[in-house]
Design a protein around this nucleic acid. Sequence first.
DNA 1: ATAAATTATGACTGACAAGTCCAGTCGATG
DNA 2: CATCGACTGGACTTGTCAGTCATAATTTAT
Lengths: 208, 208
Amino acid sequence: MRQTQIPLQRKKRERQAKRAEILSAARKVFATKGYERATLDEIAELAEFAKGTLYNYFDSKETLFREIVESILDEMIHIAEQALAEGGPVRDQFCRYAVRTLEYYRTNEDLLHILVREIHRTHMKEDLSAIIKRVHAIASVLASALRREMNKRLIIKDDPAELAHVFVGMIHNRAMRRSFTLPGLTAVDCEAEATFLTRLFFDGAARS
Amino acid sequence: MRQTQIPLQRKKRERQAKRAEILSAARKVFATKGYERATLDEIAELAEFAKGTLYNYFDSKETLFREIVESILDEMIHIAEQALAEGGPVRDQFCRYAVRTLEYYRTNEDLLHILVREIHRTHMKEDLSAIIKRVHAIASVLASALRREMNKRLIIKDDPAELAHVFVGMIHNRAMRRSFTLPGLTAVDCEAEATFLTRLFFDGAARS
DNA sequence: ATAAATTATGACTGACAAGTCCAGTCGATG
DNA sequence: CATCGACTGGACTTGTCAGTCATAATTTAT
């Protein structure tokens, strides 16, 4: 009995490890090729499995892809929660969130393009709800901080979620535009970008 | 001489009309299916031509698609130029630009998703320069207005192009998010959205 | 050692779509 | 009316790829 359970656990771990291998390979291929042009053959080769084996771990190309997309968004939610949880003035919290998100975008540049593209791909099709839910989760982390400030009359009275989405969008755009214009991601100053955007968000472009 | 030239002109016009038919059909199909899933067969059927005929007018699926993308961006450049050319306080100019762009996004919702997706699709591949150039054109229209304000010390001293891109991005994000959350584009108040974003951009979220 | 069970393999299939090609059509011309 | 040739349609070629399945390899149980 005992002899059979321990191996079972190891089995499970090994299976998970292989699964992770496949996911990692798939990330790379999707990142460079995009969903449609990525092939399971290439993913399998990179993961050092045969194509058929992939189907022992995932139902379909679509499933595999969605799992990746959702895990990326989960990481981004985590970044937001982490940055805000460390406290300090709200401006600093926001700036910290901005820095880390910009860094995350920088290190996962290709993948994020895929993500954006595929969010739009899915658009007319089924659910999307799993994705929308996660994006909202990011915004609502920021929104709750804004709401507190609003109660203290430090922020204009407006829908905090709306404002949060604008801020998230500003960061997102900055990262995206950067990766279009700058060819290599050489020496991007995330700190500077973050403080610029944070200041703009809170103080506006007009001179006071 | 005269007799031969007039028919030639009509011929040319008819050819252009047919070309436009194809473009129009292609827009619809690309809009609902996306680049990869759109087929020339479907485009041809909708345009009421045979597939082979498409190749009398366009070299490839790619060419056809790019022409559409570029024409959309050209329309958006035109909107920006128009809105700014009508004068008035810079804030009003920006708000006007915002309203009209949001309206444009609303009426061309599907197509714009495709556009975004395909800008990201092209990313790792060839040129993109035609697209980048056009996006910059939009921003620089706004930037020159900002630069004038900057000289009058009415705007924070910063790269006007950078600021312009932020504003353009805010509008863009707003439109995109709207089309994800609101299912039908029922009763979207572009005016309200535009004034909200314009105010936020110039005055910031913090209470003065 | 051997049988049983699990997991991996990769050749294969079926579906689909881009691009080609050419026989047939039809309006214009003289 | 006869000739011409630009335009048309859709069958055809070619290539691709997601997903399957019979078989092989490996691991576990007896």
